[in-house]
């Protein structure tokens, strides 16, 4: 092999890489939180008996699920700054890349979470809803007290798996030159002419985090018995 490895640029870059990791985690956490809330609403709309609501939700979900994430991010980097400028009167050119990324990821992930949650809700036997109504509960109560708790219990492994995928996908904010963990690693590698080492390092870090998380998911899956 003709390549001389030189890992010396990594130790000094660790604080910068950690800043990047914080951005990665910020985006991931926001997208998970918003994604689950908005995804639950979308799932309930989709299963609602009001046709327009269910069509609207289906349209949203199918639209986001048929476009590449890269394209969605490009869209949000294009639109969000314009919206902010015209609605909030923000000065043109201010850096809203992080906000755009968060909004983009949150809305994109919601579509995927909505499908997982819909399947989870549908996995709860119809008799449970009937029993809740028979006890005098309203639709909201039946959902909140009976259906959703059971549905989420079944969905924990899938939701976590989706979160791992999301964590990996945040690296795509690279298209906006935002310095998330991957972006930071790439920048350091580019600066020092050590792309090979930095890419391998980044890959290893992602692998350790994601593989550990997937072991956790496996543990949950065993406990839930799904």
């Amino acid at each position: 092999m003709g390549y001389d490895f030189d890992w010396s640029s990594i130790p000094g870059a660790l604080p910068f890489l950690w800043e990047g990791m914080k951005i990665t985690l910020d985006i991931t956490a926001t997208a998970i939180a918003v994604g689950i809330v908005w995804g639950t609403l979308l799932a309930m709309m989709r299963l609602s008996s009001l046709t327009p609501l269910s069509w609207l939700a289906a349209g949203y979900v199918n639209l986001f699920r048929s476009i590449p994430l890269v394209m969605v991010l490009l869209w949000f980097f294009l639109i969000v700054p314009r919206l902010l400028e015209s609605v909030l009167g923000l000065a043109p050119g201010s850096d809203v890349r992080l906000a755009s990324a968060m909004v983009g990821f949150a809305l994109f992930e919601s579509a995927y979470y909505a499908e997982i949650i819909r399947a989870g809700i549908q996995s709860v036997p119809k008799g449970q809803v009937a029993a809740a109504y028979a006890l005098g509960m309203s639709y909201g109560q039946a959902m909140r007290l009976v259906v959703l708790p059971q549905a989420f219990r079944n969905m924990v492994p899938l939701l976590l798996t989706q979160a791992i995928i999301l964590f990996q996908d945040t690296s795509l904010v690279y298209v906006s030159a935002l310095a998330d963990f991957f972006g930071a690693a790439y920048k350091v590698g580019d600066r020092d002419g050590r792309i090979v080492e930095l890419l391998l390092f980044a890959g290893a870090v992602y692998f350790v985090i994601c593989y550990s998380a997937s072991l956790l998911v496996r543990y949950f899956r065993k406990r839930v018995g799904a």
Binding site: S171, I195, L199, F207
Partner: peptide, 26 residues
């Protein structure tokens, strides 16, 4: 399976594109 599932696609792509040619025989 674990290797290819737990490293982001972008990192994998950059590895094939930037890293592999460096590690091959010159």
């Amino acid at each position: 399976v674990e290797l290819f599932r737990n490293v982001p696609l972008l990192v994998q792509l950059f590895s094939w594109y930037f890293v592999l040619p460096e590690l091959l025989p010159p």
